[in-house]
Design a protein around this nucleic acid. Structure first.
Lengths: 234, 234
DNA sequence: TAGTGGTCTAGACCACCCG
DNA sequence: GGGTGGTCTAGACCACTAT
């Protein structure tokens, strides 16, 4: 005896489809029925089925192509999403007190390696900053940053004694392109001093380059104190 | 003189909204008009506006709450998405030849630290594997892995000489929960030997823990050869 | 309680692209 | 050429929550 069903939501449908992928009803590389047929099966509309399948595709479980149909991916392209928080928020969220300090600030002609990196003309002026971020007064992050003066002239007037350049930039420079990379590196004498560790120790380095449309804005190197982990859950 | 407009797509609307945020029409912390009003402005339907705003919210630009409305976020929570490829794919995509080698394989009672980590009962059996992944015959990644025998009994019968445990698992164990973390660590003698570097050198370590529903499946430590960078663009 | 976003329906036209 | 997903419309009911 069947009862009248409450209509399935797109979330329900996502769940059902995921289960069918898991239990082998739709094995890897196989094709799902088309949206029209699925809407029939689920007593739903194509719009709702579409949203479910679209999201599953975006999450890396399915591949959809017009005319070809919807295929189950063999090795789901799992994706990790990392929030890119401000250091302040990262520290405060860990329940620690955040403190910021400007270590050095000077305007210099861009060194050649930086010109190459950001596609600057030779000797274009950049603002060079060094900063420290503390969590409960323990070193958390040592930041070295170059800001292209021509792209962000206001930066030359900011003194960055109270607010870090990242927070400053985020508030003023709206939407930029961004490249992030992570690597492990060896602390040199300076880094070691600021992070209160020993030269040669491994440190986690995040490097961030941003552009405003095509104009280079800044390159930042963020060295994290030993023990730092970047973690995500899916 | 105005012309009849082609209807705006949700992509057009996203673009327009982003521009208005950038140029200060809707400054940070301000509220957008509600969906009904925006659909009027754009000569569109609420459905279309809803999709545009929903996606912008998901991308971290807006915050939406029923009754309260849609607010522009002061510091857009930028997110990075990293694909989590199979090592094989990562190597091949870089245009190098991939080679895999099994280094060690044994069944052991779980060491206490692992029992704690994966919430195992004392001495539960695990399959312990060590593997090497090469790119053009240069060391690329040294992998150390523990697989919980009770969760994946078939793993005890697999010999892992031709195919790495990650590929093997991905093909058999469907959809798992996953925790990923990244850190910098110091190569010990073993790691250094496999990665053809010197003990004490910094290496990039990715640690991956997976569960099948609530059952722990595996813990993997992947040590990357010096110079490795994980990069993403937004 | 009333206003806002969240979602579903039913239908339509269209872009893409496989065969 | 024709089948598939991509998207838009017009309308409706509902869930949440600020006030």
């Amino acid at each position: 005896m069947t009862r009248p069903q409450a209509p399935l939501s797109y979330r329900d449908i996502k769940q059902i489809v995921l289960e069918r992928i898991q239990n082998g009803t739709w094995p890897p590389d196989s094709f799902l029925p088309n949206e029209a047929e699925l809407s029939d099966q689920f007593s739903s509309t194509r719009t709702t089925v579409n949203r479910a399948l679209r999201e599953l595709a975006e999450e890396g479980y399915l591949e959809r192509r017009r005319k070809a149909g919807t295929r189950v991916l063999a090795a789901p392209v799992r994706q990790a999403r990392f929030a890119i928080p401000l250091v302040r928020e990262e520290v405060e969220q860990a329940g620690a007190a955040y403190r910021y300090a400007l270590v050095a600030r000077r305007v210099i002609p861009a060194p050649t390696w930086l010109s190459g990196r950001l596609d600057l003309t030779p000797n274009q002026r950049v603002l060079h900053l060094e900063c420290m971020h503390y969590a409960d007064n323990a070193p958390f992050q040592y930041e070295v940053r170059w800001i292209v003066a021509d792209t962000i002239p206001e930066a030359l007037k900011a003194d960055f004694t109270d607010i870090g350049p990242n927070e400053w930039l985020v508030q003023r420079v709206p939407l930029t392109n961004l490249e992030l990379s992570f690597t492990a590196t060896k602390a040199d004498a300076t880094i070691a001093q600021f992070l209160e560790t020993t030269a040669g120790e491994p440190v986690f380095l995040a490097e961030r380059t941003t552009w405003l449309k095509a104009a280079p804005v800044t390159l930042a190197r963020m060295y994290f104190a030993p023990g730092y982990r970047m973690t995500t859950r899916i």
